[in-house]
């Protein structure tokens, strides 16, 4: 199966990856090759087969509702790109 340029542009936008037209074209070719490999599984009859999300069929364990974490803002923000007054800063968000 072969992807279109607009498919690739759409995916890049969804994934927040800046790509110029040359990169889009290169990605289109490579992704098309990979999807040919993937296409092998389309022919398999999976009627009635339950999808498998986890290696083991187990249930979620529940955590007691008890506070275990303390304030580590200083340590966490020491490695942040841009902070001010305890806030992480990003370019203005418009709604």
């Amino acid at each position: 199966m072969s992807l279109t340029t607009s498919d690739v542009q759409k995916i890049a936008r969804l994934a927040r990856l800046a790509m110029n037209p040359t990169e889009i074209e290169a990605a289109r070719t490579q992704l098309s090759g990979i999807f040919e490999l993937i296409a092998e599984m389309q022919a398999v009859d999976t009627n009635g087969i339950a999808p498998m999300s986890h290696a083991q069929d187990l249930s979620q364990q529940l955590r007691p509702d008890v506070v275990t974490e303390s304030n580590q803002r200083e340590a966490f923000q020491a490695i942040a790109p841009q902070v001010e007054n305890g806030l992480y800063l990003v370019p203005q968000v418009l709604e």
């Binding site: 509702d65 506070v67 304030n71 806030l87």
Partner: peptide, 29 residues
Amino acid sequence: STNTKIFSGASTAFGSEPNTQADAVSIAL
């Protein structure tokens, strides 16, 4: 009205200083 967040043991109290209740899970380390 739980004491802690849905997926971590950080407090949910309202009105604290910014990011003082943002634990490792809350900031997605």
